[in-house]
Design a protein around this nucleic acid. Structure first.
Lengths: 241, 241
DNA sequence: AAGTAACCTTGACGCACGTCAAGGGCTACT
DNA sequence: AGTAGCCCTTGACGTGCGTCAAGGTTACTT
């Protein structure tokens, strides 16, 4: 299950050439600053489905940026129950919650073949004191992270939560240049349900109801949003952005 | 309801003299750095019960540190329903979620007479590039914020959520030098319930059950924890820290 | 000291959603 | 091509907790 395939890819795609630059860590950096950032970024070979980047309780040394695919971060409570804290799309960071405790709180697991960039945190910190634009972007991304964590807690009913979840995916994929109405749900229903604190059966039933109500069409992992406005209204709107 | 009483207190208590220094922004700063930080901190006269520090949608300019009392941060969804995102004790920061969107997402409201220090964010940012220890502390605090926001989402049943809530309060008060077993719940049941996404009646019933089971004793705002271990087990433990 | 309003408690009731169980459809491996 | 195993769906059932309603306490006001 665990694996540490930290082999540096021979064909390392630098930030300056990476299509995710406009979303990821380098936002707001000029060419010179980006070149400096590139010196501390390490690329990894891809993780296979269900392989983990790090495990809960391991000492913290790096944060990660998704290069391709999707990762989930998972915590396990005292009773052994798993809870999926979040899903991470290309250009998003994970591991930030480990900075304060200096150890990983969650485990990070690949959903399908996926790859990351690793960034040594100590080096990142010292670089950030030299590059105000980088410091600014880090603060901004962490603030965003706080906000998204809070947003989940606002939603009450099951349909509100699921509608909100679909909308955040839609928004995030759109920002990445993908369609915001046709989405490939890589994660199984069980994972969606777990993340939203509900039963997989409920997810299934709600998808069916949403489909009957003309909000969307779904077949397995292939989701098409038909009525975006109605979905937003269901979600209580706050999930946009 | 709203009020902007930003009069600088004549008896401004500097960070170096403030008892909260060991928890708040100045953690890890030496005397010289702290003196620099003090130059950008502004103190306010106290807010009365239910007065707001800022309102949702207002432009972001400052973050805040609680000096005394308690504040709650509140978001209002599209349907006009309020949701309490968090309670903030002395030495804790709020307003961090406004950095990314550059406007306040929530409103911050005093629970009883309470006071804050305001810190201009632009000045804080430029100071942080000069003081690595300050930058480090900011990253650390924001990471902690991410973590606490996530922790709420892990809890499932109502008793788990309430037990977890009591425990986080206990831990946070202990860190502040107060008792971790005798807690004054300034916030009304309704606010606790709202924050935990449950009905006030449920909070009332659970408190009674916890009391019958010998976990705690509670009368109005006066809470005594009797069996800490049992509470932790109920909460699924993760809430310690 | 009396009046009023907010807060808390308690009970009765109903529903949303979790749990349990069974069946159907992909995908994958041999 | 056949079979095994997961994933998803669908139904039946139970229950945790929300909602509604009423009564009791405490705190603030004049």
């Amino acid at each position: 299950m665990a694996s540490q395939n930290q082999v540096v890819s021979p064909s390392f795609l630098k930030c300056s050439q990476c299509a995710l630059g406009k979303l990821c860590l380098p936002v707001g950096l000029d060419a010179k600053d980006m070149a400096e950032l590139e010196t501390i970024i390490e690329s990894s070979s891809p993780y296979k489905d269900n392989e983990s980047v790090y495990l809960s309780e391991q000492p913290f040394d790096r944060i990660f940026a998704v290069k391709s695919g999707v990762f989930k971060t998972v915590v396990i409570d005292a009773n052994g129950n798993e809870h999926i804290v979040g899903f991470h799309l290309p250009g998003e960071l994970f591991g930030l919650d480990a900075i304060y405790p200096q150890k990983y709180i969650s485990s990070a697991v690949a959903l399908g073949t996926s790859s990351v960039c690793g960034i040594n945190y100590n080096e990142l910190e010292s670089l950030a004191t030299k590059l105000p634009s980088l410091q600014r972007q880090l603060f901004s991304l962490m603030s965003k992270e706080v906000h998204t964590s809070q947003a989940l807690a606002v939603e009450h009913s099951a349909d509100q939560k699921l509608a909100g979840f679909i909308l955040t995916l839609s928004t995030r994929y759109k920002q990445r240049g993908y369609s915001d109405t046709r989405i490939n749900l890589i994660m199984p229903r069980r994972d969606i349900a777990n993340h939203l604190n509900m039963a997989a059966e409920t997810v299934s039933r709600l998808f069916k109801r949403f489909q009957n109500d003309g909000l969307l069409e779904i077949k397995r992992t292939d989701l098409s949003i038909i009525n975006m406005e109605a979905l937003k209204q269901l979600a209580g709107c706050a999930s946009g952005q």
